[in-house]
Each structure stands twice: as C-alpha cells, then as structure tokens.
Amino acid sequence: MRSPKTISLLQHEIREGVLFLLPAMVLIFGITLFPILFTFVLSFTDTPLSNPSPQNFVGLSNYLSFLRSTQFWQAIWRTLYFTVVSVGVELLLGLGIALLIHARPPGWAFLRTSLIIPWAVPTIVNGALWRWIYNADYGALNGLLYSLGIIDKYRPWLTEPMRALNLVIVADIWHSVPFIALILQAALATLPLELDEAAAVDGANAWQRFWLIRLPLLRPAILVALVIRTVEAFRVFDIIYVITQGGPAFGTVTISYLTYLESFSYGHLGSGAALSFLITLFTLAMALIYVRLLYRPEVQG
C-alpha cells in the first residue's frame, strides 16, 4: 500500500513532466497542428488571399468544383505519371548503382562520394541547370546530340507538352537517384553475410541469391526510400516552376503547381486549401498501399 507521501511525489512528477513537455507541445501545436486545422477550416470557405481570416462558409463547393474540373483531373493524371515514372526509374537505377558500389569495383569510394553531388545540388539550381541543358538554341543536349551525329540540326525540346513532362522527369531522376542509391547501399552494407554465403554453398547462383535473399532483406529500406520519394514526387513543384513554369499549354502543371496558381497567383486561398487537402488524401492513400504491399512482419529485423 502506498503512503500519502509517494502519491504526492508521483503527482509532483506528473506536474513537472507536464511542465517540461509544455513548450514542446505548444511548439508542435503552433507549427504543425494549428496550420493543418486552419487550412482545413479555410478549405470550406471562399477566403481570398487579400483577407486571410476564414469567412463565408461555402461547404463542400471548393472540393466539388475541383472534382468536376478537367484541369484538376489532368493535373492528377500528370502528377501520377510523373510519380510512377520518376520513382520507378529512380528505384531501378538506384538499386543498380547500390549493387555496383556494394561489389566494390576499383574506384568505388570515389563513385560513392561523387554520387552525392546531384543530390546536394538545390532543386532550384538543378532546375536552372536543366533549363539550360534543354535550351533549343544553346543547350548542351542539342550540342551533344549534334556532335554525335544523332540530330542534323538543333531542335526545341520543351515545346511539346508530353515531351516537356518527360524531360522534367529526367531532370528529377538525375537529382534523386543518388538518394535511393545511398539508402540502399547503406542497407546492403548491414545485411548479414552468412545467409548469402550459406546460399552460395548450397549452390544458389548470383541471380537467385539476389532475388531470394538480398531483395527480401532490402525490403524495409526500399519501402522507406519509396515512401519518401513518392511523397516528394507527388508534391513536385520547384523543378517545374524553374524549367517550364507549367508550360507548354499546361503540359507540366502538376497538382502542387495548380495549388500554387490557385492560392498565390489567383489569390483563392479557400480553394487552394481544398486542393492541399486533396493532395494529402492522395499521398496518404499511396503511403497506405505501400505499407500493405511491402511492410510484411516476417522480414522485420
């Protein structure tokens, strides 16, 4: 049985604990929760950017007007295409590079270090870089293809919607492959060698060892890289802002770009907030799918 003294000590500790936690809670509420709740409230109003306190409740009409607009669905489609292609290619290339480094060919340390460079370049700088590379009249891409004899005269690259989207994807891949490669390479380095060796003794060939042993063991690392990159790719904005400004003919307007236009260029804070929440729903759904597909308990630890 507890004495009254212990209880008061316990209460004291709780009180102290709460006191110590309070600043952190205030910060988290102020920086994370409050803006989310505020945005949620805004998304049901027609608040203009010029007077950003919630007003004029309009119910679901912001959401409904987007769900009914072709511009919204085209942007969603483009964003999905961007995400699937860029993350897919990044994963394959990243895995290949990770395996290559892991095999420690001559110069692997140099390779691993230089791999950081594209990732270390800020996205805005990366965008400016590729904008120059793709330039029709003095870009490096034209220069390269021309001097290799692949094209007979300089051509414009960013003037067709679908091609522009693909070229923006290439720029994004160049930037993000290193991230996936480094995560997977780090994961590879921690895998227990015994399993691999045992399988080799049992006569498994290199492909079988990769497919049946290493890949399943890499699954948690792949999941982490995929979730981070998918969410990032789904919210892609800056690289498009720099390379194409959403053009040509809205061909590279992704859902985040649409949100930017809606909120800041057109000044519709309410519908911009609704778009942000739609993006959140989509990313949440994708994260859940990943967890279902890849996060199997038996491969943990």
Binding site: A136, D137, R155, P156, L158, T159, A164
Partner: peptide, 21 residues
C-alpha cells in the same frame, strides 16, 4: 519564328538575339 519561342521568355529572346541567331 523560332519554334523554341513556345518555351522562351524575354531573357531567352535576348540570349538568342545576342548570339546573332
């Protein structure tokens, strides 16, 4: 008209013109 005009803003026009193109 330069077909790349569809992706050009003023600074690109200046660069192309300044290169004698």
């Amino acid at each position: 008209s330069n077909p790349a005009s569809v992706s050009y803003v003023e600074e690109d026009v200046r660069n192309v013109f300044s290169q004698g193109k």
